[in-house]
Write a protein that binds this DNA or RNA. Structure first.
Length: 517
RNA sequence: GCUCGUAUAGUGUAGUGGCCCAUCAUAAAGGACUCUCAUUCCUUUGACCCGGGUUCAAAUCCCGGUACGAGCACCA
């Protein structure tokens, strides 16, 4: 029936042309034609399901075991952008419940909120520190035990692994509720030592996904010999929640509506959903992104960076070779470029590998309009200029923006620098100045106007420059290129465009950190 | 091993059954403009993992395969 009609219509189109069909539609069903408008390409973030303006609560929960890195920026930018878009809230939460494997770094508690604000353009609406919220976690742990959907398990990790694989229940699972409460007290009071006992959630040992079977919720840490780095916490608690429990309870307490995180935490969602069912709560909407690698960096981890810094391989967290937020900021990457970069990548579950060129192109767009042009001569080669040339040369600070002013070079003493590499060109044009013919370390004036297509090179007059260096962070090492820099009065932190070289940021009046081409 | 997820140009990304001989960006190549190897602009090259199926119609739905990734921690 339909097929017949379609064939008929197709024949009609074939015989009399599409316009004929349009005419018929125009007469009989004009609304169908309106839908033929080409759909707009979606730009920016994908839709957020079940999101109501003003009622969206998102969170970003890093472990403060170091300052933020490039990868963290994704969590901040994506969650923060949704919070902004829906006029909701972004919670910055410190998941600092591990004191031995990934111990928190005290400085990070100060640094992360600042970096988050820089990235977002606004401060997070709430800051929550898990280690301040221990009483809440204890409360729900107890409820879990007294309501019978949690138990204290004294099996070793190894033997429980066997139960998990075999889909069989461990002996602790059938303990009386009162026994569990009793053992919970022994966890708290120190009768049990680290490794002796954990609290587990009863999710079911027969679950087909082994990751979900009676997962551990709280464990004991030796905070006597290994205290929590926050002084106010220190050795105060022995029993600590694991991520899945802490995060699940805290998300509920904070009223989180949407969780957007890496897809490596998909099983966390499933574990936590089972816990939510026990408590009778509704799990937030979730979205995931895949793994990101950067061509130039490969993988990187905060823990590894911390070890390398402590081993003296890097100067600190802001070492320009490191993929940290502070390093990128110090190298002249703008927060707007980082935001656009992450939003462009979107929230897909694909594992991707991106080149830094993508980030750099966003950054160029941000900085070029405001970056004053400046002349830096690498490996300076001094030449004497001869002939009837003018005594001073002026050029613009920015070729596209006259309003940024002019630069003036005094060439009355005939002494200028060009790059060593340019010195073997027999004929060259000193940019904005004049054509010269080279002869060893002197150059003869030919004409002010361009006389031919000789290469244009940048230069600096000796009287208007000072010794300077260009810092060029490479993958492994930091190259320093000596040279002379045009005199200027820009403040440290100014982004400049170094003529014929690329963009850079002024570290001080005679040091430029190379940003990118 | 068990479980889960993903697969569109070199790299990212749009696309949720007919607007798709597939979008946009970036990269590459060429060109215009320009007294920077900058910026801006134009052009070109270039992709639906494979095999079945459903349907009048599949990048889109289903099944199988392959590849890659993740979880199965008393880490986050």
């Amino acid at each position: 029936m339909i097929s017949k009609a379609v064939i008929e219509a197709n024949n009609l189109a074939g015989n009399k042309g599409l316009d004929h069909l349009r005419e018929i539609l125009q007469n009989e069903a004009p609304h169908l034609l309106e839908e033929r408008q080409k759909k707009e390409r979606r730009v920016g973030l994908p839709e957020l399901s079940n999101a109501e303006k003003g009622k969206v609560v998102l969170r970003f929960a890093p472990n403060p075991n170091g300052p933020l890195s490039f990868g963290h920026a994704r969590g901040i930018v994506i969650n923060g952008s949704y919070a902004k878009k829906f006029e909701g809230e972004l919670i910055l939460r410190f998941d600092d419940t591990d004191t031995s494997v990934k111990p928190p770094l005290l400085e990070a508690y100060q640094q992360i909120p600042k970096e988050a604000e820089w990235l977002l353009g606004f401060p997070p609406h709430r800051i929550v520190i898990a280690s301040d919220r221990m009483e809440h976690y204890y409360e729900y742990a107890q409820k879990m035990l007294s309501d019978g959907f949690g138990y204290v398990c004294t099996c070793s990790a190894e033997s429980f692994r066997e139960f998990r694989v075999a889909k069989s229940e461990c002996p602790c699972r059938i303990q009386e509720m009162s026994t569990n409460i009793d053992m919970w007290q022994k966890m708290l009071d120190g009768t049990f030592k680290p490794g002796d006992a954990v609290v587990r959630v009863k999710t079911g040992m027969e679950l087909k996904n082994p990751a979900l079977r009676d997962w551990p919720a709280l464990r004991i840490q030796d905070t006597e010999t290994n205290p929590h780095p926050r002084e106010e916490i220190g050795s105060k608690y022995r029993v600590w929640p694991l991520l899945d429990f802490q995060s699940a309870v805290e998300d509920h307490l904070q009223g989180v509506t949407h969780i957007i995180r890496g897809k490596d935490l998909m099983d966390s969602t499933r574990k936590q959903t089972l816990l939510y069912q026990h408590f009778g709560w509704n799990y937030p909407e979730t979205m995931y992104w895949g793994r990101v690698k950067v061509h130039e960096w490969g993988g990187f981890s905060t823990s590894q960076m911390r070890r390398d810094i402590e081993a003296g391989l890097f100067e600190g967290w802001d070492d320009p070779r490191l993929p940290t937020i502070s390093a990128l900021k110090g190298r002249g990457i703008t927060s707007e470029a980082l935001r656009q970069f992450w939003i462009e990548l979107g929230v897909t579950q694909k594992d991707i590998s991106v080149p830094l060129a993508t980030l750099y192109s966003h950054n160029t767009k941000q900085i070029d309009d405001d970056a004053p042009r400046i002349s830096f001569v690498r490996n300076p080669f001094k030449i004497e200029i001869t002939g009837e040339h003018e005594n001073s040369v002026t050029t613009s600070v920015h070729p596209n923006h006259d309003s940024m002013g002019i630069r003036t070079f005094d060439v009355s003493n005939n002494s200028i620098f060009i790059e060593k590499e340019d010195s073997d060109k027999p004929k060259l044009r000193l940019k904005e100045f004049a054509d010269f013919d080279m002869d060893g370390n002197s150059a003869k004036f030919i004409s002010k106007a361009r006389s031919d297509k000789r290469p244009i090179v940048h230069w600096i007059s000796e009287s208007d420059c000072h010794k300077a260096k260009l810092i060029y962070p490479n993958n492994e090492e930091i190259l320093t290129i000596d040279g002379v820099l045009e005199n200027h009065e820009y403040e440290s932190g100014t982004m400049v465009q170094v003529e014929r070289i690329g963009y850079g940021i002024l570290i001080d009046s005679s040091t430029i950190m190379f940003t990118h081409d």
